[in-house]
């Protein structure tokens, strides 16, 4: 319990620093939305002042910061400069798509890496092991956008098996077909995410498993005649879970960051695309809203990972 409180305090501190940094950085930026040529060039100084007053940009910085934080605590991230809509709504509409895609891809990555990594570790230095390793290195060095372009050329343009982008077909479908249609659109993006991320995970699982297999209890399990399956089920998997849960918590920012590229290639209207458009238009409220939300999600992920760790590994309970 005390630990949970400590963790929550830590999240609070982190969020405070992050909000200060992002607020400061973006407000000191030389190119503001109001000078970026986004507006009508005939605008009068009075109208400009009026606009700034509407958005609260005429007040001193600390007041802007405090009111921003206060509003954020009520889940109000302000109004987008570019579209005039509420940032909360804009994000809420898109966050599901991005999280959904990443959740599905991450589950596949995990299952695949566990299978490949453990098998490679059990048969260390075999042909299978070396093949997995080469593929992992390829996966690691493959730029996601390059792979995306290649699969688009091959499967969408040449073979016409999958759509080039988007989430839905032009004609509206209903019922089961609606979801099948979405799934069909997401095959290529999810394939790309899985391909570029399984490598590092599989290598990690492999090296962890090799360490586990070196331990004495495995030696004795083997001595009393335990089979490979039993060893994996009873000793390897339980020992793998704590470090993997930690990695899962840490991989969130990278995944959401990667969504920026993938969503813009496959024109999927998710949070990544929203952030990209906002960054190009210098739409501060949207940029800051997304930064804060993703940081919050990451921190939450880390804390959940830590808590899961306590359940999975009794050793830590004794420690704290």
């Amino acid at each position: 319990m005390k630990l949970l409180l400590k963790k929550l305090l830590y999240i609070g501190l982190m969020l405070l620093i992050i909000s200060l940094i992002s607020f400061g950085a973006i407000h000191m930026a030389p190119n503001s939305f109001f000078s970026a040529g986004e507006l009508n060039p005939n605008i009068t100084p009075e109208t400009l002042e009026h606009l700034k007053r509407i958005y609260g940009l005429d007040k001193p910085l600390w007041e802007q910061y405090l009111s921003w934080v206060w509003a954020m605590l009520h889940l109000d991230f302000g109004i987008s400069f570019a579209t005039g809509k509420s940032v909360t709504q804009e994000i809420a509409q898109r966050i599901g798509v991005t999280l959904g895609i990443n959740l599905v891809s991450m589950s596949i990555v995990f299952a695949l890496s566990l299978y490949l990594g453990i098998k490679a570790a059990l048969k260390q230095d075999s042909v299978f092991d070396r093949t997995v390793k080469q593929f992992s290195l390829i996966s690691f060095s493959m730029p996601s956008f390059y792979l995306a372009l290649l699969v688009i050329i091959l499967f969408a343009v040449e073979l016409k098996l999958f759509p080039i982008g988007g989430l839905h077909s032009l004609e509206q479908k209903s019922g089961v077909y609606y979801y099948l249609d979405i799934a069909w659109h997401l095959v290529l993006p999810i394939f790309v995410i899985v391909f570029v991320s399984f490598g590092s995970m599989a290598m990690y699982v492999r090296s962890l498993t090799i360490e586990i297999l070196k331990s004495d209890y495995i030696f004795f399990a083997k001595a009393r005649g335990a089979g490979e399956k039993e060893i994996v089920k009873r000793f390897v998997l339980p020992n793998l879970s704590p470090p993997l849960v930690t990695v899962l918590g840490l991989s969130l920012p990278g995944l959401i960051g990667g969504s920026v590229i993938l969503e813009s290639i496959f024109s999927i209207n998710g949070m990544g695309l929203l952030f990209y458009q906002a960054a190009l238009a210098r739409d501060y409220p949207v940029i800051m809203g997304i930064l804060i939300i993703t940081s919050f999600l990451t921190l939450l992920g880390n804390v959940l990972a830590d808590l899961a760790m306590l359940r999975l590994n009794p050793y830590f309970k004794r420690d704290s």
């Binding site: 982190m14 920012p253 960051g257 920026v260 590229i261 960054a279 940081s295």
Partner: peptide, 11 residues
């Protein structure tokens, strides 16, 4: 590590 690197770069 909490800031998505790519977001930070973009920003």
């Amino acid at each position: 590590l909490t800031f998505p690197t790519f977001f930070l770069l973009l920003a």
